[in-house]
Design a protein around this nucleic acid. Sequence first.
DNA 1: CCGCTATACTTGCGATGTCAACTATCTTAG
DNA 2: CTAAGATAGTTGACATCGCAAGTATAGCGG
Lengths: 141, 141
Amino acid sequence: MRAHASLTRQLSGRLETAHGLTLNDYDVLVQLAYAPDRQLRRVDLSRSVLLSPSGITRLLDGLEREGWVEKGQCASDARVTYAVLTDSGLAKFKAVRKTHLVDIEAVFGSRFSPEELATVSSLLGRLLDSEEPAACLEEPA
Amino acid sequence: MRAHASLTRQLSGRLETAHGLTLNDYDVLVQLAYAPDRQLRRVDLSRSVLLSPSGITRLLDGLEREGWVEKGQCASDARVTYAVLTDSGLAKFKAVRKTHLVDIEAVFGSRFSPEELATVSSLLGRLLDSEEPAACLEEPA
DNA sequence: CCGCTATACTTGCGATGTCAACTATCTTAG
DNA sequence: CTAAGATAGTTGACATCGCAAGTATAGCGG
């Protein structure tokens, strides 16, 4: 818990001062950037971002105000509202990611060897609730 | 981050439904129980519990309302207000700890061997901001 | 002994997040 | 086709927490 608090303060702080984004904001941007058609149902987002459905609604409100995300309808199910990453949103994400990956490298690279990183990652993975999509670090379309 | 979220939900949930306590509430109780004279300055608490000073004030408000903590004056410095664990608070702590340690064992014991626990602990320790008192598991006076 | 700075603590405000309740839509059994 | 229940999403009330500002006290240099 202490490691998490320390980590969060550092990464979230830099993200916020540099780009005005929360870690959760960034997480949503990531999920959308790598999703097919750059869109996702809000339910699916709430599962992968570890936020309650209402939390997702409110977080998306902010991203929509900034013009990074739009609402999209679903042809086959009128209940679902897609969160769609706009071009502007994708650009924002790419800009933020650049510095965020550097921040992460600064924190982890200086403290862990690649083998150690693999070890923590694997061990902590056992604590995960159940099925959670793994992170993806490739370039989005 | 995902491991932390998962962990927090489980432990905090059980703690709250079983005893009406937050993880931070419990953390404060722990710190006080093991402190000399069962009392601590609020500044020191805020450092070891990873909460801002204002957070500590508000958290303690709750514990004082329940009668588990009292305010204490400092003879040599009129600025400081001690948080003092009452007898009732110590009893509460002991009761809560009993089930909390079981919860922890349930989460970690089933997923990690003792060696693995030592490994994660040591690796995650490197992420800590700086000087943070280590946890203590012995019986308080 | 007088200011000046630092420290301990509290409080107002805003941000974030959860839960419970509600609406709307889909699905399925009869 | 309809009623019942599941699912997607939003909203209002509420809790928690941090920041900035304010108060009070301490300590120190002149």
